[in-house]
Design a protein around this nucleic acid. Structure first.
Lengths: 132, 132
DNA sequence: CCCATCTACAACCATTTGGTTGTACGTTAG
DNA sequence: CTAACGTACAACCAAATGGTTGTAGATGGG
């Protein structure tokens, strides 16, 4: 399942990184000027190491970049990253809108609707999506 | 951290549900006409129970609704759900754009830039985001 | 009625996650 | 040089995740 140059794994990491309030907060904080990890860590009720891990997750998702300055490591959110998240969402939504539009046509003959599924999902057991 | 009526928990569940290729695939499949869970399960190399769990995750994230028809349970993706995901992303991005714009002003006096952080993150240790 | 189908749910297991502590290493300030 | 700071990383732990099997309750077809 690769659509727009975004691998399944990429999207997995992206959404997984976003699925945590602390990490989302780090993202918000690190756009208002890059912060060192230790300064960041001081803002949360957890250890430096824990925050460090969160930053790593964000980094592997491509949401954030680290840049060393002297002894500290500055974290900055990647502005393009949100774009990538949005594209992943768009990729999902495009399937949406197309089928929904097509469906609205099918909904016209509402009589035969409870005879069976509107679209018989033509031979879908061809082992498509999940490559995990 | 509640901004647009979207709780942290809500957003957590939303993104977590999206952070799995199988679940995203289920979403794509269930917009082209609602499918029963068993029919859905036949499309994946895993047990019915496993797929059932995935559907539950999607349901608790509000991405999908189940509707009983006879002995089968039809799964349909909620069209508004993507909107909610997008809003969550927007909420993140708005912080972005605002600060980035403000930052571009600060970047003008590039001389003093390596003396310290551009924005001193004014008293950020006020215990904001993470309620986990 | 009986049987096959679809669903629900509990119990279990391996792996991952999110957190901790502890140790080691480079860098800067005094 | 030495001490303090910022970081990296390993080891460990509890809880959640993603999967399995097994059992049991509704429902529809013959």
């Amino acid at each position: 399942m690769v659509v727009d140059g975004l691998t399944d794994d990429t999207v997995d990491r992206l959404f997984h990184a976003l699925a945590d309030a602390t990490r989302r907060d780090i993202l918000r904080r690190c756009v208002r000027g890059e912060l060192s990890v230790s300064r960041l860590a001081a803002a949360y009720p957890m250890t430096f190491a824990a925050v460090q891990k969160h930053v790593t997750v964000l980094e592997r998702a491509g949401l954030v970049t680290k840049e060393r300055r002297g002894r500290e490591q500055l974290v900055r959110t990647d502005p393009d990253a949100v774009g990538r998240a949005r594209r992943a969402l768009d990729e999902l939504e495009s399937a949406w809108r197309a089928r929904v539009d097509r469906m609205s046509g099918l909904l016209a003959d509402d009589a035969g609707r409870d005879a069976g599924p509107a679209a018989p999902a033509p031979d879908d057991r061809t082992r498509k999506g999940p490559d995990r």
